[in-house]
Amino acid sequence: MVKAPRKLPAARLDPSALARKAALYRTLLVIGFFVLWEVLANIGAIDERSASKPTAILAAFGEMFAGNTDTYQALSDTLYVLVIAFIIAVAIGMPLGLALALNATIREAYMSIVIYLLGIPKTIFLPLFVLFFGLGNGSAIAFGAVLGFLQITVNVVAGVDSIEPRFFRVASAFGGSKWHSFVHVILPGAAPAIFAGLWHGVRNAFIGVLIAQMFVSNIGIGYLVKVYTNNFNIDSAMVLIIISAVAVILLGTLWELGEARLTKWKSTVRS
């Protein structure tokens, strides 16, 4: 007897149904994690004094945002430092990436340095930042900017490299100048990689700012997390850690939406 061919489930064919299902799975995992954490803390399997528990964190969240101006101040300080660090990272990373991608001599001379800098653990240099920029915002901005610009630079280079030579040939054949090639080929062609670079840049700048605030600053979220932890106020420290994590996730989602809107053509390109 001939067996009828098996039908494909609709979710496999419908991307939006697949996305909804994936979101449900993700939500269940997160809820499951917090429930397990609460249960383990309540039965004493984990030490509540060092690991806290979700209900205690929730209570601390209310207290910290009800009347404690330190929390708002720390958030605004970190946001301010991050924005400045990211602007500097973009201002250095974008032109440097373009210069490395478009000029063979500059690439030959400096690309290896950028790759080495990208590979080595930057935290080891943090004390040097204090020597140059002092304790406080200066070091946090500089450290965040350095971590950010390296990511932006390498992504811009990779983005320009990924543009097929035939597009430059067409621009030239149709009378395009170098400026036309830059505006009509390089920028849009490298846009997906540039977006990825900017995202990695802002994420790394945020990491840099938090690390600097923890170790060489007396303001911001990083500093408050350190203070709360040193004072065994784990509930409050956890609130700030979770806020930081959620902020990065939300920013990443917004970034993806913005990228999808600005590089709509990408979804039409067949592999």
Binding site: R169, V170, A173, H184, V185, P188, T263
Partner: peptide
Amino acid sequence: FVFQDYSLFPW
């Protein structure tokens, strides 16, 4: 020119 690979800008 008209090229074999079309070379239309996908963006």
